[in-house]
Write a protein that binds this DNA or RNA. Structure first.
Lengths: 224, 224
DNA sequence: GCCGGGGTTAAACGGATGTTTCAATCGCCT
DNA sequence: AGGCGATTGAAACATCCGTTTAACCCCGGC
């Protein structure tokens, strides 16, 4: 064990070799997966020697775990999502939650970090635990709390499925974007701005819950 | 080129070596991905020699493509989904579509084949094209047609997003099941039967479109 | 001045992987 | 029976991967 640094942002090419390795590992693992990415390629991208990964992390898998941890830090915690309204009405909280979630999915701060996280979520491995407990779980419980306020009469499984419907809509734009572009063409999909998607998901969800006019109806000019 | 067989179901262990290889490849690729699965392991599982894969397919990637093609055949075409109602009302068509989609996602005929397809969809490669054009595209266009009937006033992008909301809900239960179980516990997630999920997604969607009472309201006893 | 240790490097090692070779075997047809 | 193409078998090949080794460099402290 050699160091204990506060771990800054994504290594800017003149940072510590360790940080550059983590950054290069994020890129490589996000693009090619754990097996597909080679430590030689990672070290080359980081401008370091092949032995560096074993010197700093021990082995390839430890580097992977470190890369995922760094990614979930970079992508931002999710429990801080519904900040704007503290004691606001539940509908407003839900609106804020969806807005934040769609934004992060549609245009994340670090696309590389997000891609790596999604890869780990699709096939959970050793690094999944920290991402789930620190990144996803808080968001899920926050959403469940909001929905419980909004729908006090629903049973537990029903509430769970409502949450899944919300998350499913948000995650779709991140998990199925390549396929969507293949089907409908890149232009048509790219035409959907983050604002359009946000407004749509909010409206679709609120309409389903009876707190907004349904999609078929004409749009309300100013509903706030 | 040696053969041209009608390509039956998933090789039952006494089938052609070629079919056994494809079946074993599906299993291995679905579980470990393209890089993670080794031709030696595949051949061992198929009870064939290492040279067999090169003899029948040329190389590993060709076998992968063949496995994905076979998988999308096994998982069933998607354009045959809204069969029950021919000239039925659009709402009924949508209901049938969602029902079929959720069923296939929640409890597919061949979980292995479905897992392999999902893997390829998450990171499209050489085999993605045939799966998209023959498996996903028909379903997507069928859904768009149904929604267009249902919502003639909507613009093209809005219709697209409605379709994404429907697909997002359906796909969630396949793409995010491991994570959901990590968050809420396997028991709670397993408690959601395919019937419950189907009814929920149908009701959520129809409510959002104004063709069913919202989720918050008490359930309609017999709505048909 | 030199010594020592953290950081770095090039080279090599053992193993695994995709692929190839070539002989042996099987099944069928004349 | 004999021949012949299709298939299978075991071994080898070349390459690549993760990891290790041992020497090297640099720099601050006794």
């Amino acid at each position: 064990m050699a160091r204990a640094k506060p771990e800054s942002a994504a290594a800017p090419a003149d940072a510590d070799a360790r940080d550059r390795l983590v950054a290069a590992a994020q890129e490589a693992f996000a693009e090619h997966g754990f097996k597909g990415a080679t430590v030689r390629a990672i070290c080359a991208a980081a401008g370091a020697n092949v032995a560096a990964v074993n010197y700093y992390f021990g082995d390839k898998e430890a580097l992977y775990v470190e890369a995922v941890k760094a990614a979930h830090l970079c992508a931002g915690r999710m429990d801080t999502v519904p900040v704007p309204p503290a004691g606001a009405p539940p509908v407003e909280k839900l609106r804020a939650f969806i807005r934040e979630m769609v934004s992060r999915m549609h245009a994340p701060a670090s696309p590389t970090a997000m891609k790596l996280m999604m890869r780990e979520m699709a096939h959970p491995g050793r690094a999944a635990h920290v991402v789930v407990t620190e990144f996803i779980q808080p968001a899920a419980f926050a959403l469940r709390g909001i929905l419980r306020e909004l729908l006090p009469a629903l049973s537990e499984p029903e509430l769970l499925m409502v949450g899944f419907s919300v998350m499913g809509q948000c995650l779709f734009y991140r998990q199925n974007r390549p396929v969507s572009e293949l089907i409908f063409g890149k232009a048509e999909v790219d035409a959907l701005t983050v604002e359009m998607v946000t407004d749509h998901v909010v409206r679709f969800t609120l309409a389903a819950l009876g707190h907004a006019p349904p999609i078929g109806a004409k749009k309300p000019g100013g509903k706030r």
